[in-house]
Amino acid sequence: MEFKDYYQVLGLDKSASEDEIKKSYRKLARKYHPDVSKEADAELRMKEVNEAYAVLGDLEKRAAYDQLGGGYRDGQQFQPPPNWDAGFEFSGADFSGADMGDFSDFFANLFGHAAAGRAGRGGRAGPRPRRGEDHHAKIVIDLRDAYQGAPRTITLRGARADAQGRVSMQEHNLTVQIPKGVKEGQHIRLAGQGSPGSDGSAAGDLFLEVHFKQDPHYRVDGRDVYETLPVTPWEAALGASIEAPTPSGKVQVKIPANSQGGRKLRLKGRGIPGEPAGDLYLLLEIVLPPADSEKARQLYEMMAREMAFNPRLAMGV
C-alpha cells in the first residue's frame, strides 16, 4: 500500500501545533464542504482531509503515525512493521466505523482496529451499542429508474479483517433494487448491509441517499417532472396532435390552438409514480424554422404582409 502524508494533505509541516492542525482542518473543511464547495473533486478532497484529521487531530494516533512514517514520502510503498502500534493506546478518536468506508487502505491498515472497537460519537455517555454501525452512501440513478424501478449495482468500500486480524479496505459490489416511485433526496434503507455486529449481534443497515442524474430533457421537483417540448409555429397556432417523449415512453399530446411559447400543459399522473403520482408538465417552446431558403423567406415575407401582427403593442410601440 502507499504511504499517506497527512501533513501534506492538511498543508502543514511536521512541527505543526495542535492549534495549527485544527485551524488548517477547519479551513479545508469549509473549502471542500460537499454542500457548498464548487471544487470539482470536493467530495474526494473532503474525505482525504477528514482522514488526515482523524489521525493528526488525535494525540495518540499522531504520535504513532509520526514514529512510524518519519522517513516516508506521500505515495511511497509502505508496509507497517509487526506490532508497530505496541505501546500506543488509541481511544476517543472522533470518527466511527461508518466513516471507514471513506478512508484509505493505509488508514484502515493502521487504525482500523481502533475504529472497529468503538461505537457512538461525540463523547456522550452511554452504553456502546453492540449492533454493527449503519453506513451511508449516495446513489445516482436515471429518472427512468424512479418510474419503473430497476436493479442497480453499486460499489462500496469497507474495512474487513482477515484471519490474522489484519484490517484492509475492500471493495464489494451490491446490486440494489431501486424502488419504483423513489424521489430525489429520499433514502433507501437496506437492512443488514452495514458493519457486522460484534459478538454475533445484528449487522447495521446501509442508507442509500438517492440522487437523479442530470438529464438534458427533464427537470424534477418532488414527484412532478418538467419537460420543454419544442413545437412549430403552425402547431402552436393551429393546434395539433403530436408525439412527445416522456420518461415512461412516447405519448400523443394535443396542443391547443393559439398556444404561446411557455404555455404549460399538464399530463396528470405522468410524473414519478406514487400515492399520489406526480404530474408531467410540458412547457411549449416555439421553434422558428430558419429563413435559409428562397421559399422560406417568401413565406415569412407573406406573413409579414398579410398578418399585421405587432407583438410589442402592449409596450406602446
Binding site: P151, T153, V176, Q177, P179, A191, L206
Partner: peptide
C-alpha cells in the same frame, strides 16, 4: 448468481 438486495423507502417506513 447476483443477489438483488431490496430495501425500503425511508419515508414509507
Amino acid at each position: 448468481h447476483t443477489e438483488i438486495v431490496t430495501g425500503v423507502l425511508l419515508d414509507e417506513v
